[in-house]
């Protein structure tokens, strides 16, 4: 007495409408599953690739304190990647398969990680702006309709707050330092401001999947809504730091109750997303190398585990 697809679909729609969570073994439309796999994989890849720009500075941290903080932060990002791959696996894909797709350039990751980190101020600005934008994106995902994704996001959001605060504190230390340090912070802000705004994705008119994702309650807000929220939150923070956000059109709009701001360069966004950003090739090559260099470790550990099992079961049999 198997339920028809129509009945299953009705149950799925009811669950979504009641704002309940879909769990791994529930029936779900194929397109819902595909959308989630793509989004979660992309998100996981971003966390993993995202370790590189900051990892670049671990060995050159200016003090032991900063080094310990940066190390912990980068380790968290690895953890975020693992939580997310685990969530994706509940949808019936294999982590190894997703990694293969990443290094074969068949799945994307956030465009922001294709920009280089040129000074230690970048560590602070990434924590402040990039993790800040990520938080804006991720907080609503804690209520995403797919249970494992939502739970991973709750875990991640708890840890992100440390990321943003350590970045901001680093910047505070620098702007209270020498003139050269203040200039470093401004220069870094100039480079990261626009790419951070692009993290929310293309403008709503150019984001064909948003409507369906919102109907499925995977997404709760449009790209432009989140971008506006980020700008509104960030401007006062920039004023407290005494840095200028590099946008001549940025001003408070009394009528709207929001900041007006300029249009990011969407041609640059498209170019970076499709592979021609300043660091795309380097990021992928690094990830590929790490994966290949780790192959013998994975194989050796597996062989050791098999040997141990054989020994144990051999003893039991004897």
């Amino acid at each position: 007495m198997a339920a028809t697809e129509q009945e299953l679909s009705a149950v799925f729609e009811q669950t979504i409408a009641a704002d309940q969570r879909i769990e791994p073994r529930d029936w779900m439309p194929e397109a819902y599953r595909r959308t989630l796999i793509r989004q979660i994989a992309q998100h996981a890849h971003s966390e993993i690739i995202g370790m590189q720009p900051e990892g670049n500075w671990i060995l050159r941290a200016p003090s032991l304190r900063r080094k310990a903080i940066l190390l912990a932060k980068v380790q968290d990002e690895a953890g975020h990647g693992m939580y997310l791959y685990a969530a994706a696996e509940t949808l019936g894909v294999d982590r190894a398969e997703l990694t293969e797709k990443l290094i074969a350039n068949k799945q994307k990751y956030s465009s922001i990680f294709n920009y280089p980190t040129l000074s230690y101020a970048d560590v602070g600005v990434i924590g402040w702006l990039v993790d800040g934008a990520a938080i804006c994106n991720q907080v609503p995902l804690c209520r995403c309709s797919y249970g494992p994704y939502a739970r991973a996001m709750i875990r991640i959001c708890k840890e992100e707050s440390f990321h943003q605060r350590q970045g901001y504190e680093l910047l505070l230390a620098m702007v209270n330092g020498t003139e050269a340090q203040r200039e470093m912070v401004q220069e870094s802000t100039n480079r990261f401001w626009w790419p951070s705004l692009m993290m929310f994705g293309p403008p709503d008119g150019d984001s064909p999947n948003t409507r369906q994702s919102m109907a499925w309650r995977i997404k709760r807000h449009t790209n432009d809504e989140l971008r506006q929220r980020f700008v509104d939150m960030t401007v006062p923070q920039s004023e407290a730091l005494g840095v200028t956000l590099p946008d001549p059109d940025l001003r408070w709009n009394e009528e709207r109750g929001h900041y007006d701001f300029g249009e990011p360069d969407w041609d640059e966004f498209k170019a970076v997303i499709s592979g021609s950003g300043p660091c795309n090739a380097q990021r992928l090559a690094h990830r590929r190398r790490a994966h290949e260099n780790g192959a013998w470790v994975r194989e050796a550990a597996r062989a050791y585990a098999e040997k141990q099992t054989a020994k144990r079961t051999g003893r039991v049999a004897a």
């Binding site: 953890g79 939580y83 685990a86 991973a152 550990a301 050791y304």
Partner: peptide
């Protein structure tokens, strides 16, 4: 949550770190 490990002992260590 879940994770991958070669054996149970490694799974415990990874779980602690993760």
């Amino acid at each position: 949550g879940s994770l991958h490990a070669a054996d149970a002992e490694m799974a415990l260590h990874n779980a602690r770190d993760l």
